[in-house]
């Protein structure tokens, strides 16, 4: 019998959704509307294009849904998804978070709270299973622990930091150019958004032909950048 379950990635925003798009297409997923193997896929019971959701067909003929949930909302949305896991035929949920003003331990606490609420079995501090393994919940935080990033890499652990680091690693000259440009600004905005300023600068300088929404997916098309990204994601458990 065909497995009707749907897997879900709950991310914070549209940039994260775009980044996932680049990687998922790289991994062989197809956008659902363009999928060639539609007959092999489960039939979606509910609307698939609401709220900025992107759906993909995986090479294993499953549906993977990427849902941008606004900052700090992925865990709340995971709570609703878990409540409805049976009616929505839910397989796995990946809760994808930025650290922002949280510590990584806080994200573990959030996962543990969900696990206890739904009586899950812990797999690791950031994962648990439910219903005898029918549903699984994982979390992944955009985070790179390295004490020596190349010059120009923003400090705040975030998706932007990973992407900027990957670009600077591949093209060191771009990193120094962005750093020089940011330093040259008169009355720059608050430094707490430096990671965004850096990412936007790389976008404006080298990837602007596809629009801001596609910047984070198009970095995956650059071989040099992609190698670093795949290693970085491997370090946070995404392979």
């Amino acid at each position: 019998m065909k497995d009707r379950r749907i897997d879900v990635i709950l991310c914070e925003g549209f940039d994260d959704r775009s980044f996932w798009k680049g990687w998922l297409l790289r991994l062989g997923c197809e956008e659902l509307l363009k999928a060639k193997n539609k007959d092999a896929l489960p039939v979606l019971a509910t609307g698939d294009r609401t709220g900025g959701t992107f759906d993909y067909a995986t090479p294993a003929a499953r549906i993977l849904r990427v849902v941008p949930c606004n900052q700090k909302k992925p865990t709340e949305e995971a709570n609703i998804k878990l409540k409805r896991r049976e009616v929505d035929s839910l397989g796995a949920i990946l809760i994808n978070l930025d650290l922002d003003d949280r510590k990584i331990e806080d994200t573990h606490d959030e996962i543990e709270t969900l696990r206890q609420k739904y009586g899950g079995t812990a797999i690791s501090p950031d994962a648990f299973s439910l219903d005898g393994g029918e549903s699984k919940v994982f979390s992944a935080v955009w985070w790179l622990d390295d004490t020596s990033p190349p010059a120009g890499t923003p400090e705040q652990n975030s998706l932007e930091r990973i992407v900027c680091w990957a670009i600077i690693n591949a093209y060191p000259d771009r990193g120094s150019a962005v750093e020089a440009w940011l330093a040259s600004r008169t009355n720059p905005p608050a430094e707490d958004k430096r990671h965004k300023a850096s990412a936007w600068s790389f976008y404006a300088g080298w990837y602007n032909d596809h629009g801001t929404g596609d910047f984070y997916s198009h970095v995956w098309k650059d071989d040099k950048v992609r190698d670093f990204l795949e290693k970085a994601l491997g370090k946070i458990g995404l392979k």
């Binding site: 609307g47 609401t50 709220g51 959701t53 949930c69 606004n70 949305e77 609703i80």
Partner: peptide, 8 residues
């Protein structure tokens, strides 16, 4: 669910 996430 409806306003912020578009949950069906």
């Amino acid at each position: 669910s409806r306003r912020e996430i578009g949950e069906d």
